[in-house]
Computed example of a mutant assay.
Amino acid sequence: MESAHGAAVTADGLGLKGPRGWAFREVTFSVSPGSLVAIEGPSGSGRTCLLLALTGRMRATEGEATAGGLRLPRRAAAVRRIAALGPVPGVSELDPAFTVAEHLRERALLQRRFDGSLRALLRPRRERVAAARARIDGALEAAGLDPAALPKAERTSVRDLERLEALRLSVALALIGRPRLLAVDDTDLKLSDAERAEAWELLRSLAAGGTTVLAVCSQAPEDAVTVRTGSTGATAPTDTREPAPQADPAHEEGTADALAETGHA
Rank of each mutant, 00 (worst) to 15 (best):
M1R: 07
S3Y: 01
S3E: 11
A4L: 15
H5F: 05
V9S: 00
D12V: 08
G15K: 06
K17F: 07
G18N: 09
P19M: 12
P19Y: 07
R20C: 05
G21N: 06
W22P: 12
A23W: 02
V27I: 15
F29V: 06
V37Y: 01
E40Q: 15
S43I: 13
S43P: 08
G44K: 05
G46F: 09
L50H: 00
A53C: 15
T55P: 00
G56C: 01
M58P: 03
T61W: 05
T61V: 04
E64L: 13
E64Y: 03
A65H: 00
T66V: 01
G69Q: 02
R71T: 13
R75K: 14
I82H: 00
G86A: 04
G86Q: 00
V88F: 01
D95L: 13
L104V: 11
R107D: 12
D115Y: 12
L121I: 10
R126I: 09
V129W: 12
A131S: 15
A132T: 10
R133Q: 15
G138I: 06
E141K: 12
G144L: 04
L145S: 11
P147K: 06
L150D: 09
K152C: 12
R155K: 14
R155A: 15
T156Q: 09
T156H: 13
R163A: 05
L164S: 05
S170P: 08
L173Y: 08
A174D: 01
V184A: 03
D186I: 02
L191H: 06
S192D: 13
R196S: 15
E198I: 03
L203I: 04
A207Q: 04
A208S: 10
G209C: 09
T212E: 00
C217M: 08
A220V: 02
E222F: 07
V225Y: 09
V225H: 14
V227N: 08
R228D: 12
T229A: 04
G230T: 07
S231Y: 09
T238M: 11
P249F: 03
H251S: 14
E253L: 10
A256R: 14
E261T: 14
E261M: 13
G263V: 13
H264Y: 14
